[in-house]
Amino acid sequence: MAGTVAVLLCSNLIGPAKACVVTLPVIGIVTFGAGNLFFPISYIFGDVMTEVYGYARARRAIWAGFGAMIFATFMSAIVVGMPASPTSDYNKLLQPALETVFGNTWRIVVASMAAYWVGDFVNSFVMAKMKIWSEGRHLWMRTIGSTICGQGIDSLLFYPIAFYGLLDNATLASLMVFNVLFKIGVEVAFTPATYWVVNALKRAEGVDTYDRDISFSPFSLKDEGDTKSLK
Rank of each mutant, 00 (worst) to 15 (best):
L24N: 01
V26G: 02
V26M: 09
I27T: 01
I27R: 00
G28M: 10
V30S: 09
V30W: 03
V30G: 08
F32P: 00
F32N: 01
G35V: 14
G35A: 07
N36G: 14
L37P: 03
F38K: 01
F39Y: 15
P40C: 15
P40L: 14
P40Q: 15
I41R: 01
Y43I: 09
I44M: 13
G46M: 09
G46I: 05
D47T: 07
V48Q: 03
V48C: 03
E51V: 08
V52A: 11
V52N: 06
V52T: 13
Y53G: 00
G54L: 03
G54P: 01
G54I: 03
Y55S: 02
R57E: 12
A58D: 04
A58H: 05
R59N: 13
A61C: 04
I62C: 07
I62E: 08
W63S: 02
W63Q: 02
W63K: 08
A64T: 09
A64N: 07
A64Y: 09
G65N: 01
G65R: 00
F66T: 09
G67L: 12
I70R: 04
F71Q: 11
F71N: 08
T73I: 10
T73V: 15
F74R: 02
A77C: 07
A77G: 06
I78T: 09
I78K: 10
V79I: 14
G81R: 11
M82Q: 10
M82I: 14
P83H: 11
A84T: 11
A84K: 14
A84Y: 10
S85G: 03
P86W: 02
S88T: 12
S88R: 13
S88H: 03
S88A: 14
D89W: 02
D89H: 05
D89K: 10
N91M: 14
N91A: 05
N91D: 12
K92F: 03
K92G: 08
L93W: 12
L93A: 11
L93S: 13
A97G: 04
A97S: 11
L98A: 10
E99W: 07
E99R: 12
E99H: 05
E99M: 15
T100C: 13
T100S: 11
F102N: 00
F102T: 00
F102Q: 00
N104A: 13
N104P: 09
N104E: 03
W106S: 08
R107E: 08
I108P: 00
I108C: 05
V109K: 05
V109G: 06
V110L: 15
V110Q: 03
A111S: 07
A111L: 04
A111Q: 00
S112T: 12
M113W: 01
M113L: 12
A115N: 10
A115Y: 09
Y116P: 00
W117R: 00
G119Y: 12
G119N: 08
F121S: 12
V122H: 06
V122Y: 08
N123P: 00
S124Q: 12
F125C: 07
F125Y: 14
F125D: 02
V126E: 08
A128P: 04
K129E: 08
K129N: 06
I132W: 04
I132Y: 01
S134A: 13
S134L: 15
E135S: 13
R137F: 13
R137T: 09
R137Q: 11
R137W: 02
R137S: 15
H138L: 10
H138T: 09
H138Q: 14
W140I: 06
W140L: 06
R142E: 12
R142M: 06
T143C: 13
T143K: 11
I144H: 02
G145T: 05
G145L: 10
G145C: 06
G145F: 04
